[in-house]
């Protein structure tokens, strides 16, 4: 538990930094007081309507991706698993792409996140139906790959048939993932799903610990495999679906964060859930601050940055792992 305090502090500091860094150039004290006063000054509007939702979304989505990555790796007993594996991010993206393509997204602001949520729901229903009540972790992976492939193919089809080049480029940029220009409405839309998903995953710690010994041994220790699988799938789907709906596809957080923190929690999957939630929030806050600092005028996409940072970090970890294992 010596890990919790530094991680909480880190998230706290990064959250404050996220609120205080931006193109509007608001001072530290000025910004913080504008956040808590109810006046209609431009500073207060910037703080409350632009920066606060952005920072809140970074915390929610980062924590969600971290915890669902840890749960997925724990359930599949594979350090290479990630939340996107069950096909939810792919099918959420499909929903969003259809909303952009049909023009619904421009007609009605919430059409895009709603369509993405509907896509995620469709994807998870197919996965649950395919993986079945008596399925194993392998059937879950296969079902996820099938749904991802299908959603990917349909997304490509929509792009392929798009008569409008602007819609196509809008789709491509949306799929890179970003937290820019999100409002409190996005926060309120994602929050219930994040809370439900987080609650489901938080309760899987004991089952995931037992899964260290495999499905048979865990079931013989009184863990219901069916319930555990359903909690992991639905919990991950809620989080990834809501996250993708409001921010687009943000990769590598769910893969890298549990991997980095695993040695610090003694490899225990249950403890890794909490640590990865905090770690994921910290990583996404940091990445979202970085896109504002590195290329402020070029609108660097968050998903591009997490992949740029995540991939080399992951390579480094693999090289380190290769050194310690015989």
């Amino acid at each position: 538990m010596r890990l919790v305090l530094p991680l909480v502090l880190l998230v706290f500091v990064l959250f404050a930094a996220s609120l205080l860094i931006g193109p509007a150039g608001i001072g530290v004290w000025e910004g913080l007081s504008a956040l808590f006063t109810m006046d209609e000054s431009p500073q207060a509007l910037v703080m409350r309507e632009i920066r606060l939702p952005r920072a809140l979304l970074a915390v929610m989505i980062g924590a969600g991706l971290g915890v669902s990555g840890a749960a997925m790796q724990g359930y599949l007993r594979n350090p290479l698993a990630e939340p996107g594996l069950i096909g939810v991010s792919g099918s959420a993206a499909l929903g969003a792409v259809i909303a952009i393509q049909t023009g619904a997204a421009t007609a009605f602001a919430l059409a895009l996140p709603m369509a993405a949520l509907a896509g995620a729901l469709g994807g998870v229903l197919v996965v649950v139906a395919l993986a079945g009540p008596r399925g194993t972790s392998l059937t879950l992976i296969l079902a996820g790959i099938a749904v991802s492939a299908m959603a990917g193919a349909l997304t490509s089809l929509v792009l392929n048939l798009s008569p409008n080049p602007f819609a196509a480029s809008e789709i491509v940029f949306w799929m890179m993932g970003s937290l820019a220009d999100r409002s409190m409405t996005h926060v309120w839309l994602a929050l219930p799903f994040m809370v439900i998903g987080g609650g489901l995953l938080a309760a899987t710690g004991r089952g995931l610990d037992a899964m260290t010994l495999g499905e048979d041994a865990a079931e013989a220790m009184g863990i219901s495999m069916g319930r555990l699988r359903l909690a992991v799938v639905i919990g991950t789907a809620c989080i990834v679906g809501a996250g993708t709906a409001v921010a687009g596809a943000i990769g590598f957080v769910g893969l890298v964060v549990p991997h980095v923190l695993r040695p610090l929690v003694g490899g225990r999957p249950g403890r890794l859930l909490w640590a990865s939630a905090l770690g994921g929030a910290a990583m996404l806050l940091a990445a979202d601050i970085a896109v504002r600092i590195v290329l402020p005028e070029r609108d660097l996409k968050l998903g591009v940055l997490t992949a740029l940072v995540g991939a080399p970090l992951f390579l480094h970890l693999i090289l380190k792992l290769r050194g310690t294992r015989i």
Binding site: R77, D209, A210, M211, T212, L213, G214, G266, G267, R268
Partner: peptide
């Protein structure tokens, strides 16, 4: 199948029996 998925300590692993 002697599955041990994660690098937990021996003590932690034996404690899983108390689940």
């Amino acid at each position: 199948q002697r599955e041990i998925a994660w690098p937990v300590t021996v003590e932690t692993l034996v404690m899983l029996g108390r689940t």
